[in-house]
């Protein structure tokens, strides 16, 4: 459980991190909270040559009210998101979902940006972003660009970010007053979800993000469409797993995951519309 040797660079600003990435190209990896990357390195499943530690880049740690949306710095720790009054007021779904991430130790180290940039379909936070139809801000050598969440997740642990880019901010449209629900199904309190569902319902439209239902974080598009056309939660939830290609593993077969997606989506929509 000792990682392979690597060079360590501590970046004190986003610019310094960008410069380091530019220099080392795809041999470098950003280290944020380290709670996804370090386990991979310890198993030697990841062997980056260079680690660029952005854990202390304080100017990317913030939760701001930006008028019609919340702007959250990518390096904000889960625990700060979870306990933020602003998040509780404007995006209670995010606050609730974050409180289910791992355990307190994990939430004090892990960051919202790392959770998203890792592109792990088993992560809870991407499902929230899908439900919100969030926007992601990336900074690279050529400047800053906005990425709609639907374009962000490209494949298993693959995102739209280029090796020389940093995810800097996550923007969530404000949703005070919207119906919401987070359903996480796991065997132990600190476990990753076997299947999870984030639902955000307002004005007859629903955003539904799924955890662990495909090789990337995915939305339950058919169920969302059903809600839009007036279906009841139970009716809409029937199509929750349509188009999803979940994997079969120790905890669940494909069939069981599909079943859970339907059950949890129904529960989520019922709660969000109650």
């Amino acid at each position: 459980m000792i990682p392979a040797a690597f060079e360590y660079i501590r970046a004190d600003s986003a610019d310094a991190a960008l410069a380091a990435l530019a220099e080392h190209g795809d041999e470098a990896k950003l280290l944020a909270g380290g709670h996804s990357l370090i386990p991979l390195m310890r198993f030697r499943l990841a062997r980056p040559e260079v680690i660029v530690d952005v854990g202390r880049v304080d100017d990317l740690k913030y939760i701001n009210d930006a008028g019609d949306h919340l702007a959250i710095g990518a390096l904000t720790r889960h625990s700060d998101v979870e306990t933020s009054d602003l998040v509780k007021a404007e995006a209670p779904l995010l606050s609730a979902a974050t409180s289910y991430v791992g355990d307190p130790q994990v939430r004090h180290r892990g960051t919202i940006g790392g959770s998203v940039a890792h592109g792990d379909p088993a992560s809870d936070i991407p499902s929230v972003l899908l439900a919100f139809r969030a926007t992601l801000i990336a900074q690279g050598p050529g400047g800053t660009r906005e990425i709609p969440v639907d374009d962000f997740f490209q494949g298993f642990l693959e995102t739209d970010l280029a090796p020389d880019e940093i995810l800097t901010e996550i923007r969530l449209p404000k949703a005070a007053g919207a119906g919401w629900s987070f359903q996480k199904f796991n065997r132990r309190a600190q476990d990753w979800a076997i299947v999870g569902v984030s639902a955000l319902v307002q004005n007859g439209t629903a955003g539904i993000g799924l955890v662990n239902m495909d090789s990337t974080p995915v939305r339950a598009a058919a169920a969302e469409a059903a809600v839009a056309s007036g279906a009841s939660p139970a009716e809409a939830a029937e199509s929750a797993a349509i188009g999803c290609e979940p994997t079969s593993d120790l905890n669940a077969s494909v069939e069981y995951r599909q079943h859970l997606a339907r059950v949890l989506t129904r529960r989520a929509l019922e709660e969000a519309t109650a």
Partner: peptide
């Protein structure tokens, strides 16, 4: 072996 760490092996906790 497919349960060779504490993430995959279902070691119980007080919460359960």
């Amino acid at each position: 072996p497919v349960t060779s760490n504490f993430a995959d092996y279902g070691f119980i906790s007080a919460a359960e």
